[in-house]
Design a protein around this nucleic acid. Structure first.
Length: 372
DNA sequence: CGACGTGTAAC
DNA sequence: CCTTTTACACGTCG
């Protein structure tokens, strides 16, 4: 049967939510900010609504720059309220779950839906489902979204980007070739700055150039796996399934009030961040085996240190390990000051109730190496 | 092979 | 001036 995939992308999600709960700011440029706490205006823009984008304000840019672009204009700057956004996101994901054979949430405001079965592989049916989703999200949450429909996740994702906001774009198999050709490779989902540079050096600028490029040369630059992946992407080929993915790691990172190499100050920050990690760990009913510290120095270079032990859900005792890791780091990097620090748990194990992989495990227990 | 660390990418 | 969170691939080491 023809696989049919829908990609749903909520339009300037955070900003729209703020406009919804504050009638005063509706219709104005709205900028949602992550303040780092270093100085009154330090931090980055998380989301800019379309009015704000007209002024050149973009996600990721420093707040100070956004404020310069906003000078003399009536622009609303708000701190982000992730709790609220998550609450609404969960409601929308629940709604989407009802519309799909399988749902894969990819971020707080994005999801893939496999609708192959319920649309019996018929494009028009999938398009109806997409329209239905748009209506429901508007009626129930007052939000708009952009949707793409395609034969796989890659095409669906790129289709949803085509018309924004409030778009609905269907790219049928017969249209894939036209849809992709002459597109700069950087526009392909999954191809970022580094890969674009390397491709450009090979003289590859467009998607069709990539599709017909000698695979052996790509393999030299990228390795077998990535080379194949790149050429598949260039042809609109993507067999990855829409599947609900179990979370694999939980991390929190934060910015220090000032650059420092003081163990106590940094460790305090890590303790503070770990409260959040612990909360999420409890909510997910997960144990972990690995704890890491994440450091970002004054040059913005990121480094990690981690240690793996027995499984536990006791983050407090793991913090002792985090402290040791931090000590080691500071000893190995004398004179280096830190700007940001974080903590991460990974190698997660879920307690009972989920992961009913039971049959095999019940009979054979936990599979271990049999040293033959 | 598992553990560890880095790089790339997307949001 | 420069936020946050997650995933995944890959190299290296023991």
């Amino acid at each position: 049967m023809q696989r049919l995939i829908i990609h749903v992308d909520l339009d300037s999600f955070y900003a729209s939510l703020e406009e919804l709960r504050n009638t005063e700011i509706r219709g104005k440029p709205v900028v949602i900010c992550v303040f780092s706490g270093r100085s009154a205006e330090s931090g980055a823009v998380s989301t800019a609504n379309y009015k704000a984008r007209e002024l050149g304000i973009r996600a990721g840019m420093p707040i100070s720059l956004a404020k310069r672009l906003a000078r003399n204009k009536d622009v609303v700057f708000l701190p982000y309220d992730i709790e609220h956004y998550r609450t609404v996101s969960e409601r929308i994901m629940d709604l989407l779950e009802d519309e799909a054979d399988a749902l894969q949430q990819v971020s707080i405001d994005e999801a893939y839906l496999d609708v192959t079965k319920r649309s019996i592989g018929i494009w028009e049916n999938a398009e109806k489902i997409a329209e239905n989703i748009k209506n429901k999200i508007r009626q129930r949450e007052g939000l708009t979204c952009s949707i793409g429909v395609g034969s796989n996740k890659l095409i669906a994702k790129m289709a949803s980007k085509q018309k924004k906001p409030e778009g609905l774009t269907v790219v049928r198999n017969t249209e894939v070739k036209k849809f992709l050709e002459n597109l700069p490779v950087s526009e392909l989902h999954g191809i970022g700055d580094k890969t674009t540079k390397t491709l450009n050096q090979l003289g590859i600028r467009t998607v069709n150039e990539l599709a017909s490029f000698d695979l052996h040369i790509l393999e030299e630059k990228f390795g077998k796996n990535k080379a194949k992946l790149l050429q598949n992407k260039a042809q609109g080929i993507d067999d990855s399934p829409v599947k609900h993915e179990e979370i694999q790691q939980i991390s929190r990172i934060g910015t220090l009030k000032e650059d420092t190499d003081n163990l106590e100050i940094v460790f305090e920050k890590i303790k503070e961040l770990s409260i959040d990690v612990e909360k999420k760990l409890r909510k997910k009913k997960a144990l972990f085996r690995t704890i890491s510290i994440i450091t970002v120095d004054t040059t913005l270079k990121t480094q990690t240190k981690s240690r793996t032990t027995h499984q536990t859900d006791d983050l407090d005792s793991a913090l002792d390990i985090a402290r040791s890791l931090l000590e080691e780091f500071l000893e190995e990097n004398l004179g280096k000051k830190l700007r940001r620090v974080g903590v991460r748990v990974s190698n997660l194990i879920f307690k009972e109730d989920q992961q009913p992989l039971r049959d095999l495990e019940k009979y054979f227990g936990k599979t271990t190496k049999n040293s033959s």
